[in-house]
């Protein structure tokens, strides 16, 4: 497939929107920039405004405040049919009165492409999405993964400036999700189109995104690269949502270290504030490990996490931490934990 001649940037400026009749805004004061050809994943719990953000870009809802710029031009006044946005809703919304080719060709027909242009472009899209063998099949006879590809091919066929994917993997079973994730990312990279990808699955976001927007209650909690979201979450919500980290208070010590509990000293990933004795940290399950030389914890919970166990233990201070173990630990048992080699804990308050 030919890449779009020029990938498009997206700028949200103070976008606010409330659904009619609702006193609560679905998204509030959203400001973020997406670079041309970037793959940005919007992640957050159900009802946090992820899909609404996509619907605003598509022109399906009109924000009450703010500006939306595509390549620097205000786009909010344009109706959806004039924006050149490819939108793939969670249900895929395939036209069941058309076959696969008919679906992929739909946008080209609407935009007045002639038969020859349509046929050529449809074939390109079918090849790109590897669904050529289903070209004349009714969409009702396709599997979930095939339907997803048809929906993406249909959205890409019109050479959109921006592609919006709303939970494109949610309708698939878990095994297929992981298998198709890398495939989908490769497809998006090949297409070269600026993409906003919505998911509620943080592992999906971290796996494929150039940058991730973490939303909560319609507001941006953090907009950053997957690596920085993991190592430097902006707040307790992001830390807990992205990496299942636990937030703890710790006492500051000299030389950039903190004391989580008597005997449990940890280095941190940034300079400690000079005006405070106590700081807030995020501790991920992968930061701690069973260690015979470590400090004592009382096991309060143990969950199997596929090949390993996530154990919850109470420190002498009363704070609960989590760590990974190779075997199940009985609740109530005492264990000893220490810091994993090379770990530097993230300080939240600066």
């Amino acid at each position: 497939m030919n890449k779009p001649s020029k990938a498009t940037s997206i700028d949200f400026e103070n976008i606010t929107f409330a659904y009619p009749g609702s006193s609560v805004a679905a998204v509030t004061d959203i400001t973020l920039s997406v670079r041309p050809a970037e793959l940005v994943v919007v992640v957050g719990p159900s009802g946090c405004g992820k899909s609404t953000l996509l619907r605003i870009v598509a022109g399906l809802v009109q924000p009450s405040r703010g500006r939306l710029l595509l390549d620097g031009s205000d786009t909010l006044k344009l109706p959806p049919e004039k924006r050149r946005i490819g939108w793939v809703p969670q249900s895929y919304a395939l036209f069941d009165h058309l076959d696969v080719s008919g679906n992929v060709a739909f946008g080209l027909r609407m935009q007045g492409a002639n038969r020859e242009q349509r046929d050529r472009r449809v074939q390109e899209m079918l090849d790109l999405c590897r669904i050529s063998q289903f070209a004349h099949r009714p969409v009702s006879e396709l599997s979930g993964g095939q339907r997803q590809r048809v929906a993406i091919a249909r959205a890409l066929a019109t050479d959109p400036r921006v592609l919006l994917l709303d939970e494109p993997l949610a309708a698939l079973d878990p095994q297929l999700r992981v298998a198709l994730r890398a495939d989908l990312e490769a497809l998006l990279r090949r297409s070269g189109v600026t993409t906003l990808f919505v998911t509620h699955d943080q592992s999906e976001a971290l796996a494929i995104a150039d940058r991730v927007v973490v939303l909560r209650d319609g507001r941006i909690e953090q907009y950053d690269t997957p690596e920085r979201l993991w190592t430097q979450p902006a707040n307790a919500f992001v830390a807990e949502f992205v990496s299942r980290a636990i937030t703890l208070k710790a006492r500051c010590r000299p030389e950039g270290t903190v004391e989580l509990a008597p005997g449990l000293i940890a280095p941190v990933n940034q300079a400690l504030p000079s005006d405070r004795d106590i700081v807030t940290l995020t501790v991920r399950p992968t930061d701690l490990m069973l260690d015979p030389e470590g400090v004592a914890v009382e096991v309060t919970g143990c969950e199997y996490a596929g090949g390993t166990y996530t154990v919850f233990g109470r420190l002498a201070t009363g704070a609960v931490v989590s760590f990974l173990a190779d075997a199940r630990l009985p609740i109530g048992e005492r264990a000893r934990v220490g810091l994993r080699h090379g770990t530097r804990l993230n300080v939240l308050d600066q």
């Binding site: 598509a58 022109g59 399906l60 109706p79 959806p80 049919e81 924006r83 050149r84 946005i85 490819g86 939108w87 809703p89 249900s91 919304a93 036209f95 739909f106 946008g107 609407m110 935009q111 249909r154 959205a155 019109t158």
Partner: peptide, 18 residues
């Protein structure tokens, strides 16, 4: 579902009549 199909059609360039 029909409303969602219409919304998709709109993003694909279909105006009201189409």
């Amino acid at each position: 579902r029909l409303r969602e199909l219409e919304a998709v059609a709109a993003t694909l360039g279909a105006g009201t009549v189409k």
